[in-house]
């Protein structure tokens, strides 16, 4: 564990808590993509199957259980409890266009051709693009509430901090996972446009609204 990794994890944790607070306090899931949350649930479920096969640390186990628990709770809020506020018309990204190529790629490019390994690789690839339905929804409605912007900023920062963690680990420990690094770079690049809007607008007290 290094400072980049810890900050990355805390940023990820903060993102999830910000999203839950937004939904709980406003009693609304407006502006939130249910499809992105379903993809994240798929990511966590696939990646954390190793909860049953290997123990790493109390910290590791607690974080995994928390991530899985909260993402399913988020889905429950979107599709059941606050269903009336869910904007399904604008959440129209075709997720099969992500799932199918990502699944194919996980089969073709992995560290080892074994079931758990392919599922892990699938989760890494899928995570890198799982935010696309959310970004698509914002581009469609042309705006994002400030609290949603904070959520996205924290969520995007998490993988960017992981990139710093991997650079550090490469020099400090000789650690290098090409699949995670490439997917992490792709994931971070997808947020760049949003990061720009966040810094130029949200940090100056304005909300994100795109020209029609």
């Amino acid at each position: 564990m290094n400072i980049f990794r810890l900050c990355g994890d805390m940023s990820h944790l903060a993102a999830i808590i910000i999203l839950l607070l937004k939904m709980w306090k406003t009693r609304s899931v407006a502006g939130i993509s249910g499809k992105s949350q379903i993809l994240f649930a798929t990511v966590f479920t696939a990646r954390y199957l190793d909860l049953f096969t290997s123990f790493i640390s109390i910290y590791n186990t607690c974080m995994k259980v928390f991530f899985i628990g909260t993402v399913y709770f988020t889905i429950y809020l979107i599709y059941m409890k606050f269903k009336a506020t869910y904007d399904s018309n604008h959440d129209s990204f075709r997720v099969e266009f992500l799932i199918v190529p990502v699944g194919g790629l996980a089969f073709l490019v992995n560290h080892e051709f074994a079931p758990l390994e392919i599922i892990w690789t699938f989760s890494i690839y899928l995570e890198s693009v799982a935010i696309l339905p959310q970004l698509f929804m914002i581009s469609k409605t042309g705006e994002a509430e400030t609290i949603t912007s904070h959520y996205l900023f924290a969520l995007g920062s998490y993988r960017a901090l992981y990139l710093c963690n991997w650079i550090y680990r490469y020099y400090a420990e000789g650690f290098f996972d090409l699949i995670a690094v490439v997917a992490g770079v792709v994931q971070t690049i997808l947020y760049c446009d949003f990061f720009y809007l966040y810094i130029t607008k949200v940090m100056k007290g304005k909300k994100i609204s795109l020209p029609a």
């Binding site: 990794r5 994890d9 990820h12 190793d50 290997s54 790493i56 640390s57 590791n60 974080m63 995994k64 991530f67 560290h111 892990w120 992981y162 963690n165 991997w166 420990e173 000789g174 650690f175 290098f176 996972d177 090409l178 995670a180």
Partner: peptide, 10 residues
């Protein structure tokens, strides 16, 4: 072996 998998990460 150079490649080590990030299984201790989240």
């Amino acid at each position: 072996k150079k490649a080590k998998k990030g299984k201790d990460e989240l």
